[in-house]
Simulated assay, not measured.
Amino acid sequence: MARSQQSFNKKEKEKKRQKKKEEKAKRKEERKENSPGGGLDSMMAYVDELGNITDTPPDPDLEREEIDASTIEIATPKMEDIEIDPVHRGRVEFFNDQKGFGFIKDLDTQEKFFVHVNGLVDQIEEGDKVTFELEKGMKGMNCVNVNRK
């Protein structure tokens, strides 16, 4: 005769597993019954006409204000045509003749800008007062059309 495949230990372990499973299901049912949740209605949220989140549904009899969709601006508002003087005034803070570059400090904003020998109209030295225009470069704004005053 063939022996049973299950030993005493295996049977005991299986009984314990079944008992744990039943206890877990019982606890789950108790939590469901005692839960103060209230179901889906308590979880619903509504947005009123001003964009505020509320828990009361909107009144269908309430008159709504008509909004013209063409007046809504999605992008950044366009700038007015303001004339900005492209010529800046500054002082040469540093200039290396051998390497061909330096920095000019704007007298109005106190910002320093890079200047290359290719952007010069006149020869400049440290301390000279100059006028210049700004141009977007690879690493920031660069001075071009630099003239000594």
Rank of each mutant, 00 (worst) to 15 (best):
S35K: 08
N9Y: 11
F101K: 02
L40H: 07
I53Y: 00
E80C: 08
K32N: 13
G38Y: 01
V146K: 01
K32Q: 13
I72T: 11
N52D: 11
A75I: 10
G127V: 07
T54D: 02
D61N: 11
Q5G: 09
P36H: 07
E12V: 15
D68A: 05
L62F: 01
A2E: 08
G102M: 03
E83G: 04
P77S: 09
G137P: 01
N34R: 11
K26M: 13
D48T: 07
E125M: 06
Q98A: 10
K26D: 14
E126V: 08
P77H: 04
E29R: 15
D122P: 02
N145L: 01
G137A: 07
N96C: 08
K136P: 06
E66D: 12
D48I: 04
E111P: 01
K149M: 03
G127P: 04
K28H: 13
M138C: 00
L62W: 03
K105W: 04
T76R: 13
S35H: 07
E29H: 12
P60C: 02
S70V: 12
Q6P: 00
E63V: 09
E63A: 12
S7W: 00
K139V: 10
I67L: 14
K129C: 02
Q5H: 07
I82Y: 10
T109M: 10
M43Q: 14
S7Y: 03
E83R: 06
I124C: 04
A25E: 15
K15I: 12
T131K: 11
E125R: 13
Q5V: 06
Q98F: 06
E65K: 05
Q98Y: 07
V47Q: 01
M141T: 01
K10G: 13
S42R: 14
E133D: 05
S7L: 08
T54S: 12
K13S: 13
E33S: 08
E49M: 05
E12D: 09
K16A: 15
D108G: 00
K24I: 14
K15F: 12
Q5Y: 06
V130N: 03
N52Y: 06
G38S: 10
G140T: 06
P60I: 10
D55N: 10
M79P: 02
T56D: 02
